[in-house]
């Protein structure tokens, strides 16, 4: 009985923080097909966030929008609050989330610069902002209070090759801090985000029909990471961890790595094109033992 009381106290003083990174880039494929799809996705994400708040009174929510030109916090707002009128049949906190998110996103879309060609979404930057937000909340916690944090990325963008290093920094930082990264891919399979989900023990899901997005979110991503091992969830796909060579930017299985600057190449070259190191020629293996030779080359 005392153990149950201790577990109950533990649950009461524990906070679950969910940060949703929502991709609002007009260049996404499903947005260009039908702009009404973004409205539906927004409604599903808001309903999912409110469902997370409904689970426990101590739960916290944050929504970050990611576009082609900027990253903004949709909820919560730093200073001012949205004026609320009494709405019958809806809990006031949920109404606050809905109004704040919709108002902020409408303002962002109104002031966005005009596009003439598709652009990348700044997903890595948005995830970095989410990590900073979590870190600030972690520092301001009261003594004895625990917080479990996770990031959910909802995106339909393509791979972001130019943000490779930022993505890797985000993934390893999240792993170090114990933050789980979940990804809900709306259009294509994203191998980089798969790597992030894999090393942070998150769930990667590529939805097959956009109409059922809310059902996917509630079924797969609503449970907290601490209890997912008790549920039967979709098995993770096989993750492609291959590196890309520096000369052709292609994924390689076997390559050469410079021991000085760790550049990756698909073909052998006697001189490293990054640090200009001259390598020793790989001659035939000596038949008898090792012979000490004076040489100025390294590898």
């Amino acid at each position: 009985m005392e153990a149950d009381q201790a577990a109950s106290k533990e649950a009461e003083s524990c906070i679950d923080l969910l940060v949703i990174v929502l991709d609002t880039n007009p260049s996404q494929h499903f947005v260009r097909q039908n702009p009404q799809n973004l409205t539906q996705i927004l409604e599903a994400v808001i309903a999912f966030g409110n469902a997370h708040l409904m689970q426990k009174a101590q739960n916290k929510l944050a929504v970050v929008s990611c576009s082609h030109h900027a990253t903004n916090f949709l909820y919560p707002l730093p200073r001012r609050q949205v004026e609320l009128r009494q709405v019958d049949g809806q809990y006031e906190a949920f109404n606050l989330v809905e109004k704040t998110v919709k108002q902020q996103l409408g303002s962002i879309l109104m002031n966005a610069p005009r596009l003439s060609a598709p652009c990348e979404s700044l997903l890595a930057g948005s995830m970095s902002m989410a990590l900073c937000y979590i870190s600030r909340l972690q520092r301001n916690l009261a003594p004895g209070v625990k917080m479990h944090s996770r990031i959910l990325v909802v995106t339909g963008s393509n791979e972001c090759a130019s943000q490779y290093m930022t993505f890797m920094n985000v993934f390893f930082t999240a792993q170090k801090l114990g933050i789980t990264i979940d990804t809900c891919a709306l259009d294509k399979t994203l191998s980089l985000l798969q790597q992030g989900c894999d090393i942070t023990s998150g769930q990667f899901l590529k939805v097959t029909q956009l109409d059922g997005l809310l059902q996917y979110l509630l079924w797969v991503f609503l449970p907290a990471p601490q209890i997912r091992h008790k549920l039967v969830l979709p098995p993770p796909p096989k993750v492609d961890y291959r590196a890309s060579c520096f000369c052709h930017r292609e994924l390689i299985d076997i390559g050469y790595v410079c021991s000085v600057c760790l550049s990756v190449f698909c073909k052998y070259s006697p001189i490293c094109t990054t640090c200009h190191t001259i390598f020793k020629n790989p001659g035939p293996l000596p038949i008898k033992g090792k012979k000490k030779k004076k040489t100025d080359k390294q590898m």
Partner: peptide
């Protein structure tokens, strides 16, 4: 001395553009 440092920052070239 390092040259072409930007090659560290980029990942594989994406197969399908928008």
């Amino acid at each position: 001395e390092l040259s072409k440092v930007e090659r560290y920052l980029n990942g594989p070239v994406q197969n399908s553009m928008y």
